[in-house]
């Protein structure tokens, strides 16, 4: 079948690829560009393991065809922290046991990353509603919610410090 060229920015880097139009974005990211952060849990738009950030919005990358992402600005879990400098969310998931097997974690982190920008000071209920598109088979969610609440407060504190430093 005929292939087409698609370009997009992934974690700040310009990427070009040649794929069949039916290639799902999650496959393009994982198999063509080797960003394996986004996981495939259900491939049926339910579990959220494949959640990434596309043009500033959380989306399930198993339910986007790659050409729909032409010109998009994409952020995957690889783009928000590094092993020696974890993002506040990654640090808090580690500290509060926000994961067990870890399969849902990249999706959970990417969804909470965007959610905390939509709502920097959420209640626990708002966190639960905010991550309601992400399923976890292991944790029972309790520690995921705890981790996100802790990260929210850490990010707010960091921002206060940043503001003071600028002033």
């Amino acid at each position: 079948m005929e292939k087409i060229n698609v370009s997009m920015k992934v974690n700040g880097k310009e990427e070009n690829l040649t794929v069949e139009p039916r290639t799902l974005l999650v496959h393009a990211l994982r198999e063509h560009l080797e960003y394996t952060g986004a996981h495939i849990g259900c491939s049926s738009s339910h579990c959220g393991a494949c959640t990434i950030d596309m043009n500033g919005k959380s989306v399930k990358s198993c339910t986007v065809f790659t050409p729909q992402a032409e010109g998009a600005d994409i952020l995957t879990v690889e783009g928000i922290g590094s092993p020696d400098k974890l993002h506040a969310l990654q640090e808090m998931f580690k500290e509060h046991h926000g994961l067990q097997c870890g399969y849902c974690t990249p999706g959970m982190i990417m969804r909470s990353y965007r959610f905390l920008q939509e709502n920097p000071d959420p209640t626990e209920d708002e966190v639960r509603f905010g991550i309601s598109g992400n399923l976890c088979r292991c944790t029972g969610y309790q520690n995921i919610v705890k981790s996100i609440m802790a990260a929210a407060s850490k990010i707010r504190d960091e921002e206060k410090v940043n503001k003071k430093e600028i002033a």
Binding site: S45, G48, T51, S58, V59, T63, V64, S132, G133
Partner: peptide, 9 residues
Amino acid sequence: IADPQVRNL
């Protein structure tokens, strides 16, 4: 309707 990610698209 659905969940946050679905409602985004």
